[in-house]
Amino acid sequence: MAKISNIILVHGAWADGSSWAKVLPLLAAQGMTVTAVQLPLTAFDADVAAVRRAIALAEGEVVLVGHSYAGAVIGEAGNDPKVARMVYIDAFAPDAGESAGALFAQFEAAPLGAELRPDAEGFLKLSREGAFTLFAQDLSQSEKAAIYATQGPINGAALGGTLTAAAWRDRPVFYMIGDQDHAIPPVEQARMATRMNATITHVDSSHVPMLSQPQAVADFILSAAA
């Protein structure tokens, strides 16, 4: 496979593009052209459209990377012919007709679910306990506080967005499993990654390895690009 120099990073729920801030310079230092998409998190279709716009602006083939909920988003947006390879970081990997929310409901143990707080408009926010002990437990106290304060609440309906076609069925796929993930249990990640016939690696990390283990994440993305 030829080396690809365009990397598009897509964040998950309760986050924004800055969640890739530690990975971005590591990729750029290796000559990569990197874009971190800002998802509105208001509706699944709107999130897919944001990623499609980023793909359209890329010159040449793309490695598309998704974290957490963004695994569903890239599964739909990644059907663009410019997307050559896909990387999942602690991410949902629904098939056609499936959604991130439907997969989450099937997980045997997902303690983060009890720490979601809906508002009157159906947007879900992480509780402080959820952010500090289940979402990002391996970060410093100040980083945990920043995640909690700046989190991007997601419209609960977005988690129900179903894929019309799963892009991972037609492309090389790479999957990183965070072994200390309390949001998407590692055993469930392994099942999804195996179903995709993905190249799998593990990292000793919470649900946010791009913040706790940025070098490992960058190296994995670079291996997919190479």
Results as ranks from 00 to 15, higher is better:
Gly156Asp: 05
Asp138Glu: 12
Trp168Phe: 09
Asp179Ile: 00
Met210Asn: 09
Arg128Trp: 11
Val73Gly: 04
Leu103Phe: 07
Leu24Trp: 04
Met86His: 03
Ala149Ser: 14
Gly60Val: 09
Thr150Cys: 00
Gln38Lys: 13
Asn155Arg: 11
Ser127Thr: 15
Val73Met: 00
Ser206Ile: 00
Gly152Leu: 12
Gly122Tyr: 12
Ala72Ser: 15
Ala114His: 12
Ile147Gln: 10
Ser68Phe: 06
Gly97Ser: 06
Leu159Trp: 13
Ala36Arg: 13
Met86Asp: 07
Met32His: 08
Ala21His: 11
Asp95Phe: 10
Pro118Trp: 06
His11Glu: 04
Gln180Leu: 12
Ala190Pro: 03
Phe104Arg: 08
Ile8Arg: 05
Asp219Trp: 04
Gly60Ile: 09
Ala36Thr: 15
Glu98Arg: 03
Gln189Arg: 06
Val87Trp: 00
Phe135Lys: 03
Ala226Ser: 13
Ala225Val: 01
Asp47Lys: 03
Met1Phe: 08
Pro81Ile: 02
Ser142Asn: 11
Glu61Gln: 13
Ala21Gln: 08
Met196Cys: 11
Ala58Ser: 14
Ala120Ser: 15
His182Trp: 12
Ala146Ile: 07
Glu108Ile: 02
Phe220Gly: 00
Phe44Asp: 06
Tyr88Cys: 00
Gln189Gly: 02
His67Val: 00
Ala102Ser: 11
Thr150Arg: 15
Glu188His: 05
